[in-house]
Amino acid sequence: MSKEFLVKPDIAKLNEMCKDTISEVLGMEFTEVGDNYIIAKMPVDKRTHQPYGLLHGGASVVLAETLGSVASMLMVDSETHYCVGLEINANHIRGVTDGWVHGRTTPVHLGKTTQVWSIEIINEKEQLVCISRITMAVLKK
C-alpha cells in the first residue's frame, strides 16, 4: 500500500510521546520511519520475560499494538479524528531469550472508518518471532 503518513512523524517526538507509558516501562524505542511504515525495538530482558525466561507473548502484543496505534494516528487529521483499537491478534512463531526484537508495521487497509495494520516482529538474526494484525476504528472527535 503506497499511502503516506498524513503527519510526517519525527522519531524523537514519537519516543517522547511514550514517556510514562507501558512503552517506556518495557524499554521500547522507535528507530525508523518511512513513508508508510514505522519500526521500533524492544529489549528481551527481565522486563519482557515470562517465567520460563522467554519473551512474553503479551510483551510482543504490546509492541505490535503500540506500532499499529501510532501508525494509525499518523494517517488521520488529529484535529477532527482519532483512532482506537478494535481487535488485535498475534501468532508467536519463535522464542527469544535475550537481545532485542524489532517490530515493523505496514498498512493493509486504510479506510475512512477502519484501518488494518500488519506488524512483523523479528529477532536480531532477522528471524520471524511474531506476526500480528491490528484493526483500528477511525472516529470523529
Rank of each mutant, 00 (worst) to 15 (best):
S2Y: 13
F5H: 08
F5K: 12
F5W: 09
L6D: 00
L6A: 04
V7R: 12
K8G: 02
P9D: 03
P9H: 03
D10W: 02
I11D: 03
A12H: 06
A12D: 07
K13D: 14
C18N: 11
C18D: 09
K19C: 03
T21M: 01
T21P: 05
S23Q: 13
S23M: 14
E24V: 00
G27P: 07
F30Y: 15
T31R: 13
E32R: 15
E32S: 08
V33K: 09
N36M: 04
N36C: 04
N36P: 04
Y37Q: 10
I39R: 15
A40R: 03
K41M: 08
D45F: 00
D45R: 09
K46Q: 09
R47F: 07
H49P: 12
Q50I: 01
Y52L: 11
L55V: 02
G57V: 00
A59H: 03
A59T: 01
V62W: 02
V62T: 03
L63Y: 02
A64S: 12
A64P: 10
T66L: 06
T66N: 11
T66C: 08
S69A: 10
S69M: 10
V70M: 13
V70D: 09
A71D: 07
M73E: 09
M73F: 02
M73Y: 04
L74I: 00
M75D: 02
T80R: 14
Y82E: 13
Y82S: 06
C83T: 15
C83M: 08
C83N: 06
G85V: 04
N89L: 02
A90E: 13
H92L: 04
R94E: 00
R94Q: 04
G95R: 06
G95T: 02
T97M: 15
W100S: 03
G103A: 09
T105A: 14
P107I: 06
V108D: 01
V108S: 06
H109I: 12
G111A: 05
T113P: 11
T114G: 13
Q115I: 00
W117G: 00
I119C: 13
I119E: 11
I119S: 11
E120P: 05
I121S: 07
N123A: 03
E124R: 03
E124D: 10
E124P: 05
K125Q: 10
E126C: 04
E126P: 05
Q127G: 14
Q127D: 14
L128K: 15
L128M: 15
L128W: 11
L128C: 10
V129R: 07
C130S: 14
C130W: 10
I131C: 09
I131M: 15
I131Y: 15
I131H: 13
I131R: 15
T135P: 13
T135R: 07
M136I: 10
A137L: 14
A137S: 12
K140V: 00
K141P: 03
